[in-house]
Amino acid sequence: MEPEQGVTAEPIDANPLRWLYSIFARFVARFWGVIIILGAWQAWVLISGYNAIVLPPPLSVLHQVATNLGLFAFAGLQTLAVAIIGTVIGMLLGSVAAILAWYSRLFSGLLTPLALIFTAVPAVALVPVIARLLGYDIRTVIAIVAVISFFPSFVFTGSGLRALPPGSADLFRVNGASTWMQLRYLALPAAVPHWMVALRLGAASAVLSAIIAEFAMGTSGLGSVFSEARDSFDMTRALGASLVATIISVIGFLLAISAERIVRDRWD
C-alpha cells in the first residue's frame, strides 16, 4: 500500500454566497419533484381562485401547523406510539409463528398456503371487520398495524431461519446439537438481517395504516384530527394533519433504515 498523496478535506468556501448557493443547488437536485408539485398546487390555487374550504394553498397549511404545534405534536406522538406498539406486537407474533414453522414441518405445511392467501388480503378491508370485533377505539388501530406487520415478519423471519451459512447445519447435526441449540446458535442469528428487512417494510406502512385506521375509528391520533377537521370543512387543518403524518412516517421509515444498517454492519 502506498502512503496517500494530497488528500484534503473538502474546502469550506470562503464566499458565503457561493456556499449558500451550493446548499440550494443540492436541495433542488434532491427535491425538484416535490418543489414542482407544491409550486403547481400553489399556482393552481392562485389561478383557479378556489377558496380555502376546497383547496388551501400549501403556505397556509404550513402556517396552520406552526400555530397549532401542540395539538399536532400530541396527535402525532399518539399515532407514532400506536404504530410502534402495533409493529412490535405484529413482528413478535410473526416471528413466533415463523419459529414454530421452522420447528415443525407439519405446522409449516399447514401455515404456508394460508399465509400466501393472507398476503393477498387488502389490509384496509379488515378495518371495519376488526372494528366490529374489538370496538371503535385504539385497540382496533393497534390490531390493524399488528396484522399488517405480521406477514412480512412471518415470511422474512421464516426465510432467514433457513438461510444458514453453508455446511453449518450439518456441523451442528454431526455434533448432536439439540434443536434448541440449533435455533439459539444457528437459525436465530442467521435470521436477524432478514428480520430487519421485515422491520423496514413494516415500519414503512405502520404509520400510514395507523392513520387510516384512526381515520376510520375517529377516536385518537392524527387520523382523527384529520377526520374531525374534514367533517367541519377545515381543509387547512386536515392538510396540516397530513403534513405532520407525512413527516412522522418518513421519520419512522428512516429509523427503521438506520436500525437495519446498524444491524447489517454488525452482522457481516
Partner: peptide, 16 residues
C-alpha cells in the same frame, strides 16, 4: 430527485 419525490409522495397518507 426522482427517488426523493417518490419517497415523499409515498409517505403522504392516502387519506390525506
Amino acid at each position: 430527485g426522482t427517488d426523493q419525490t417518490t419517497a415523499v409522495i409515498h409517505a403522504i397518507p392516502a387519506i390525506a
